[in-house]
Simulated scan of single mutants.
Amino acid sequence: MTCPPPDAKAVRQAITWRVALREHGNDPAFEQRCMQWRNACPSHELAWQRVVHLDQELDLRAVPAAGIALRTLETSHKRLQRRQALKLLGGLAMVGSAAWLAKDLDLISPWSSDYATATGERRHITLADGTRLQLNTRSAVDVAFNGQQLVVKLRRGELMLDCRQTLHPQFPVHVYTKDALLQAFDSRVALRLEGDCVHASFSHGRLAAQQADTGGWQWLEPDQAWRVTRDGVQREQPASMDALAWTEGLIVTRDMRLADFLAQVSRYRHGYLTCSDNIADMRLSGVFRLDDPEQLVRLLPRTLPVQLRELTRLWIRVERLS
């Protein structure tokens, strides 16, 4: 079943702990007290996770006003509701960082979803039926389980779903978005939501997508790349990037356009990252670690005849080496 939202009191307490931890620095005793509060009640942990995700999404280093917002919420005597918190935090962030706002308009997803990740975060979850779920950066899902059937709604971003060892293997896992519905049987599936389509690939088991016009199901072939929309299913050209490499903390490219590579790296960092048009079609192949996307960007001049133009730490443009 979908978890209910934490109550207002728990959210206020979570904000208080979050602010206090930043002020106390690395104080093991204080961190232990915070952990005891989190473990005292499931609502405490849920409130903590959602406040942390929102905090990370705002990137307090880039948006100083967000820290003021958290302190304002901490001392407020009004009932704290999710929409009120988002309105206040979003309004202050808008003043502090237009670049952040343009990149993270879908702020409500990590706040209201059952499971979510912030920028640069990857998360492993084992669901009630034994299905293993991994979320990539900036992803959000809702989950429902009635004791037999598991339903996963991909709200944004990217997931890997492994349902090869579940309590009820005879039942498929239903995965849907606003424009697509899929069924996974005993499979390991990678899905990425992009606009009105879902990019799908899988290497084990069976995967089917529902046809909007007939309501029937189309079986997809494994080890292929597929594009699923409300209008149907299309096979995609061989991908220039390994669809599951991110689950190992990697980007693996094969003759990938530089512009496309930078677009992928941008998903794991805050700020603005692009390249000039005259080098957008440069090709890049290799294995790159996602743990430090900033270092990854700075390695580009060693691989290609390019240079980095930095207006700020958060604004980088890759240009042809002069």
Rank of each mutant, 00 (worst) to 15 (best):
D213I: 12
D213H: 14
T214V: 10
T214Y: 06
T214A: 12
T214L: 10
T214F: 06
T214Q: 13
T214M: 11
G215D: 08
G215F: 00
G215M: 03
G216R: 13
G216W: 02
G216P: 12
G216L: 12
W217D: 07
W217I: 07
W217L: 08
W217A: 13
W217N: 10
W217H: 05
W217S: 08
W217M: 12
Q218I: 11
W219A: 09
W219I: 01
W219D: 13
W219K: 08
W219F: 10
W219R: 10
W219M: 11
L220A: 08
L220F: 01
E221Y: 06
P222G: 04
D223S: 09
D223I: 00
D223A: 08
D223F: 03
D223T: 03
D223G: 04
Q224H: 14
Q224A: 13
Q224V: 00
A225T: 13
A225P: 05
A225R: 14
W226A: 00
W226D: 00
W226R: 00
W226S: 00
R227T: 09
R227Y: 04
V228D: 03
V228I: 15
V228W: 05
V228R: 01
V228Y: 07
V228G: 03
T229F: 07
T229Y: 06
T229S: 13
T229E: 10
R230D: 13
R230W: 04
R230L: 13
R230N: 11
R230F: 05
R230E: 13
D231V: 09
G232H: 05
G232I: 06
G232Y: 06
G232D: 05
G232M: 06
V233I: 09
V233K: 01
V233F: 02
V233Y: 03
V233P: 04
V233H: 03
Q234H: 10
Q234V: 07
Q234M: 11
R235M: 12
R235H: 07
R235Q: 14
R235F: 05
R235C: 11
E236C: 15
E236T: 11
E236W: 08
E236Y: 08
E236S: 15
Q237M: 12
Q237W: 10
Q237C: 13
Q237S: 15
P238W: 03
P238G: 09
A239N: 09
A239E: 06
A239G: 09
A239L: 15
A239M: 08
A239P: 02
A239H: 05
S240K: 12
S240W: 11
S240V: 15
M241V: 12
M241D: 02
M241F: 11
M241Y: 10
M241P: 00
M241L: 12
D242Q: 11
D242H: 06
D242V: 04
D242I: 04
D242A: 12
A243I: 00
A243D: 02
L244H: 03
L244Y: 02
L244Q: 06
L244S: 05
A245H: 06
A245K: 04
A245Y: 09
A245C: 05
A245D: 03
A245E: 02
W246P: 00
W246H: 01
W246K: 01
W246Q: 01
W246R: 00
W246L: 01
T247I: 06
T247D: 01
T247Y: 02
T247F: 02
E248Q: 15
E248G: 12
E248D: 15
E248F: 11
E248V: 08
G249T: 11
G249K: 04
G249N: 05
G249R: 04
L250K: 14
